[in-house]
């Protein structure tokens, strides 16, 4: 009896639900289009959604700690605009890339600084105001213009391959491994989970909570910079209104990845699965010409039900437990 429930709870693990969902979506997509399973098609599908996925990794860590960062998409816009303007004014591309990364990291660092220096403020309100501020600065710099004129080699970043594997996928895998190691194999990772479980207890047990939060927000800024690089490279131009709404998509991916929004729980690999679930779902629905607005309904419902399920599951489990105890 006990063994049986253990098996059941193993299958009920969120990762396996996501794997099942992913297989289902792939079967659906493959039956919709005979070309879907071709290698090149698969890669172009993956390339289409990976740019914003870089931000999912640090966002998972931030949400695990019980915070949230709504300003990431604005950070993408600001750093991309900074890079575009630098290039337009004759700055060499390599320096412009550094400027982009520095801007993004600074944006994240400022978020982290405000959040840790003014603990009375929730991360939500701080990042909502910096969201408006950062995109506002991007608008001041570029107004309603677009910046372009990037050198040809810059487009390799977004479109290039190494061998037959897209560059963006390789970079994404590298960052995924780094974040997976940080969260699951280092002391810092254990500390992040501890902070999410109980902030006060973590402070008393000697964890430098401020340092960890500052690190997480700065990492979010840095990864937003990486997103900005790939996105700008793919579009070959930039505007202040790029990446609008990405923050919500990123948060949706994290939540669908089974990260507990009240903090303390989450796994990088299930978050990565969630990225592919949403990305491939969108791609598949795109194949059969379903408008992107209707896809948002499906993502919204996925988001609601994926968070509703654990609480329903818990309720059912506890009821089962009571019944079992009564039988004993």
């Amino acid at each position: 009896m006990i063994k049986n429930t253990n098996k059941l709870s193993f299958l009920l693990k969120w990762e396996w639900m996501l794997v099942a969902l992913l297989i289902l979506i792939n079967i659906m997509n493959a039956s919709l289009s005979p070309y879907y399973l071709e290698y090149n098609n698969m890669m172009s599908a993956i390339m289409a959604f990976l740019d914003r996925s870089f931000m999912v990794l640090p966002m998972a860590i931030i949400i695990i700690m019980g915070d949230i960062d709504i300003s990431v998409a604005s950070t993408v816009a600001l750093s991309s605009v900074m890079m575009g303007v630098s290039v337009q004014n004759g700055v060499p591309m390599t320096v412009a890339i550094l400027i982009c990364m520095a801007t993004a990291t600074l944006c994240g660092f400022i978020n982290g600084l405000i959040v840790t220096k003014f603990k009375e403020l929730s991360a939500a309100i701080v990042t909502i105001s910096t969201m408006i501020l950062y995109r506002g600065i991007a608008y001041i710099i570029l107004e309603d213009q677009a910046a372009s004129g990037f050198p040809l080699w810059f487009s390799i970043l977004g479109w290039g391959d190494i061998g037959t594997i897209p560059l963006i996928l390789i970079v994404f895998i590298a960052f995924s491994v780094i974040f997976w190691l940080i969260l699951h194999k280092t002391t810092a990772g254990r500390q992040i989970l501890a902070i999410g479980q109980n902030n006060t207890a973590s402070i008393y047990s000697g964890i430098n909570v401020d340092k960890m939060r500052l690190f997480a927000f700065t990492a979010a800024g840095f990864m937003a910079g990486i997103t900005a690089l790939f996105l700008t490279s793919k579009m070959a131009s930039t505007r202040p209104n790029i990446a609008i709404g990405y923050e919500l998509e990123v948060i949706a991916m994290v939540v669908l990845g089974g990260v507990s929004t009240s903090g303390g729980k989450g796994k990088i690999h299930s978050v990565i699965l969630a990225i592919f679930v949403i990305g491939l779902l969108k791609y598949g629905l795109g194949i059969i010409n379903i408008h992107s607005q209707i896809v948002t309904i499906i993502i919204g419902l996925l988001l609601i039900f994926s968070t509703l399920l654990p609480s329903i599951g818990q309720r059912v489990m506890s009821k089962l437990k009571i019944i079992r105890q009564m039988n004993l």
């Binding site: 949706a252 929004t261 607005q293 309904i297 499906i298 993502i299 919204g300 419902l301 988001l303 609601i304």
Partner: peptide
Amino acid sequence: IIATLGMMYVLRG
């Protein structure tokens, strides 16, 4: 924040 985010998607769609 999550429930209303999901609702936002559903309503926009």
